[in-house]
Every structure is written in structure tokens, then in C-alpha cells.
């Protein structure tokens, strides 16, 4: 053979080492990414001016001109942690904040929450685990009835022990609504799954991102109007917005960027 290749000079990147447990490496890397996200973002952050969004996109002509169109209508933004629960944390924060300023809505919500428990049992959620999440939610709402202030909402929504309980309960409410209306929602579910399978895989586990279907179900179940402003690379200068449910006046405004939701405040 004339063709002498010197093995020492061959590039050695991306070599597969059978002695290393690849799964553990991947898990470790995932953990590191998660720790970084956790360290850098509060579950629900502090109130920022919309100018912080402008700064974020100062080098991006498309986003930056779109952010400008938000300016007359919206004044502030509150960022949420991008951990797959952002929609739910944003929703419940904005809603509870609305409720402390609109006591009649808080009363209505409390009544709804009370009755929702039985509905979840009917769908077949295990009683004692469901009760745990329900009771925590009731505690939070009762507490806000008494001493409701924005500081309290901030504290509750940023305490992992409490916030995660609220998120789980919202997930159960979404799942119950989808399953109760399975005939209708089955047309929108991809991958040949039943509505129940979809709920078990995409709704009930923590950290699964909320999609259109989740939002339709949650807003219909709780009876709360949400307007989502879509900030993406779609055509035109104006942001596309969508109201959930379509016929309801929105009381919560969320900013959507691909894969993530933050809270918006009207000017």
C-alpha cells in the first residue's frame, strides 16, 4: 500500500468513548443548563419598562421595529423563567394581580376553584393528590382575600413550593377541560394520540410548554380573557394578537416570543 496515512495527525474530535456513560454526561449537561436558567431568572421577575425590550433588540431591525409598535399601548413587562411553565406562571401572576384590584373577580374565582375539585375527581384524578394541590390554591386565594397586595402576589409566585403547586393545579384544570370536550379537541391533536394520551404526555407533567390548545382550554375553564401579542418574524410591522376566548374582553396581556411567554402591562 502506497497510501500511508499518519494516524497521529488525524483529527480526534467527536470520538466515541465506550467507557463513558453517555446518558450520564447528557443528564449532567442538562442539569448545568437548568442551573444556569434558575440562577439567572426569577420565576416571575420584577416590573421592567418596555425600554428593556427595546434594548434587548437594539441590533435586530425586525424585532426592534415591532417592539416600537407595542409602546403606545403597553408600558411594562414582567419576565418569567423559561422553564416550560412560563405561560402558567405568567397567567396566574397576572390574574392574581388583577384579582387583588378587582375583589368581585377574586370572589368569583374562589367559587370556581371550590367547585373545580369535584370536576377533577369526576375525570378520575386521584383524590388525595388532587386535594393537596387544590387546598394549596385555596389557601393562596383566601390569603389574598385578606392581605392582598402586589408584594404578596410576588412572594407567592416566586416561592417554588407554592408556585409549583399552583402550576400543577392549572395543568389539571386544563387536562380536565380537554378531556371533558374530547370529541371537539381530538381534531387538533397531532401524532395519532387520543385526548387522554395527549393530556398525560403534554399537559399533566411539569415543564411541558403550553401551546394553543392549553391556552384555549385554560381560559375557557377558568373563564378569564387573555390577549397574546405575538412577537416573531412574521410579515409586517404590527404584532399579531389573539384573544382567548375570542368573545371575551381580555384582562391579562401576555407577550409571546417563540417558545416563551412574558407578562405585559397596558399603558
Amino acid at each position: 500500500m502506497e497510501n500511508n496515512i499518519n494516524d497521529d495527525n488525524a483529527p480526534k474530535t467527536c470520538e466515541y468513548d465506550p467507557n463513558v456513560n453517555q446518558d450520564e454526561l447528557i443528564k449532567a449537561q442538562e442539569k448545568q443548563i437548568a442551573e444556569e436558567i434558575k440562577a439567572n431568572t426569577a420565576m416571575v421577575g420584577s416590573l421592567d419598562g418596555l425600554s428593556s425590550l427595546e434594548e434587548e433588540y437594539s441590533n435586530d431591525p425586525v424585532y426592534s421595529s415591532k417592539v416600537k409598535t407595542l409602546l403606545p399601548k403597553f408600558s411594562n413587562v414582567r419576565r418569567t423563567r423559561p422553564d416550560g411553565n412560563c405561560f402558567l406562571r405568567g397567567f396566574i401572576f397576572a390574574y392574581l394581580e388583577y384579582c387583588i384590584h378587582h375583589r368581585d373577580e377574586l370572589v368569583r374565582f374562589k367559587k370556581y376553584l371550590e367547585s373545580s375539585k369535584e370536576e377533577l375527581f369526576e375525570i378520575g384524578f386521584p383524590k388525595f393528590t388532587t386535594e393537596d394541590f387544590h387546598d394549596m390554591f385555596m389557601e393562596v386565594v383566601s390569603d389574598l382575600e385578606g392581605s392582598g397586595s402586589i408584594d404578596r402576589v410576588e412572594a407567592v409566585c416566586n416561592d417554588a413550593g407554592t408556585s409549583d403547586y399552583l402550576v400543577v393545579y392549572l395543568r389539571l384544570l386544563i387536562s380536565a377541560h380537554l378531556q371533558k370536550n374530547a370529541e371537539f379537541f381530538s381534531f387538533f391533536i397531532e401524532g395519532g394520540r387520543t385526548v387522554e394520551e395527549f393530556c398525560k404526555q403534554e399537559v399533566e407533567p411539569m415543564y411541558r410548554e403550553c401551546d394553543h390548545l392549553h391556552i384555549v382550554a385554560l381560559t375557557a375553564a377558568v373563564g378569564v380573557g387573555v390577549r397574546v401579542m405575538y412577537l416573531d418574524r412574521g410579515e409586517g410591522d404590527a404584532l399579531v394578537s389573539h384573544d382567548f376566548p375570542e368573545d371575551k374582553e381580555p384582562i391579562i396581556h401576555l407577550l409571546y416570543r417563540p417558545g416563551h411567554y412574558d407578562i405585559l402591562y397596558k399603558a
Binding site: 442538562e30 442551573e35 436558567i37 423563567r81 422553564d83 416550560g84 411541558r208
Partner: peptide, 8 residues
């Protein structure tokens, strides 16, 4: 997802 799971 999984990373975020660990985080929260």
C-alpha cells in the same frame, strides 16, 4: 424541558 425540570 428536562433541564428546566431539574432547575425547578
Amino acid at each position: 424541558q428536562t433541564a428546566a425540570k431539574t432547575a425547578a
